[in-house]
């Protein structure tokens, strides 16, 4: 098991390397540079800046330099926020995004699986239709519509909650962003759980359990739900990685100091190190959560092998 985890981590290194390489060269190939402002800078200053950030060196040298620093955990200085290193920016922003994303994903897991299983057990009743209908709503309406509507409803019209802002993480400020992040995920998890549970309830081995007179709580709780949770686990892995690394929409609308905005801002401002830092962080999260999914899967399903 331990060896398996180690091997998987080692196997992820080439993937990360390829991603970093592609991202590095793609962003460098894009026209424009970090210091091309509306008003052109004095050529001398430009030259000094380029020298200070090694931009005057050959691209391959810069690439090697970046990899070398990356191996030591240094993501470089930010080009556009010149007083900060990229690591500094993530050190303050990442906990915020992880906190919001973590709450949303927990909510999605708990509420979504509960609703999905409930709908499956009450298939073709009013409860089922209500869950399925709400889930369709949650899946269809995009976050950038949900977020301002929630803000309008609870922040402007009803005045119950702040319409935006972070205020160093007070609970009241977290409710709407977490709800926005969680709603679509609750809907998807509920649909997945419902489908998987219905399929599990129809499976031959559940029929066996019923044929042997096992009580419903054992048939459903032990034999049906454990099988039904498997697709949810494999869905939630990559989703968790995406949610924990911040949502640009939610952070923009509610004015939250997470890391979700950095990618877009970095790409637009040609802040090479910031973009690369975001790519690295996201890729690491994806790799880690894929691994977590594989381990969970192996724990839940004995047919999966560690080789």
């Amino acid at each position: 098991m331990f060896a398996y985890v180690l091997r998987r981590f080692a196997g992820a290194v080439p993937t990360l390397f390829i991603i970093v390489t592609i991202a590095f060269f793609m962003i460098r190939l894009a026209p424009g540079g970090p210091f091309d402002l509306e008003r052109p800078l004095d050529p001398l200053i430009m030259e000094n800046l380029n020298r200070a950030y090694n931009l005057d060196k050959p691209l391959l040298y810069q690439y090697g330099h970046y990899l070398w620093n990356l191996a030591q955990g240094d993501l470089g200085p930010s080009f556009t926020r010149r007083d900060f290193s990229v690591v500094d920016l993530f050190r303050t922003g990442l906990p915020v995004s992880v906190l919001l994303g973590g709450m949303a994903i927990s909510l999605a897991l708990i509420v979504g699986t509960f609703l999905g299983a409930l709908a499956a057990l009450k298939q073709n009743t009013a409860v089922d239709y209500a869950v399925v209908g709400t889930a369709t709503f949650g899946i269809t309406i995009p976050p950038f519509v949900i977020a301002p509507i929630l803000s309008l409803l609870f922040g402007v019209w009803l005045g119950w909650l702040p319409a935006g802002g972070w205020s160093s993480g007070s609970l009241r400020h977290m409710i709407l962003p977490v709800a926005t992040l969680a709603l679509p995920q609750i809907a998807i998890v509920a649909r997945l759980t419902r489908g998987a549970t219905i399929e599990a309830l129809r499976s031959d081995h559940v029929r066996t359990a019923r044929a042997y007179g096992l009580p419903t709580r054992i048939v459903v709780g032990v034999h049906a739900l454990r099988a039904a949770i498997l697709p949810v686990v494999s869905y939630l892995g990559p989703t968790a990685a995406a949610l924990l690394t911040g949502s640009v929409v939610v952070e923009t609308i509610f004015g939250i100091p997470g890391i979700g905005r950095y990618f877009v801002q970095g790409a637009l401002g040609r802040d090479y190190t910031l973009v690369m830092g975001t790519v690295v962080v996201i890729a690491v999260f994806v790799v880690v959560f894929n691994l977590i999914v594989d381990i969970l899967y192996a724990l839940l399903d004995p047919r999966v092998r560690y080789d």
Binding site: I19, A23, L29, A30, V264, A267, I282
Partner: peptide, 18 residues
């Protein structure tokens, strides 16, 4: 597979930037 593991808006944004 490799394209999949890049963040999905990475491409769009880069293409738009390009």
């Amino acid at each position: 597979d490799i394209l999949y593991s890049l963040p999905f808006i990475f491409f769009v944004i880069l293409l738009v930037v390009f």
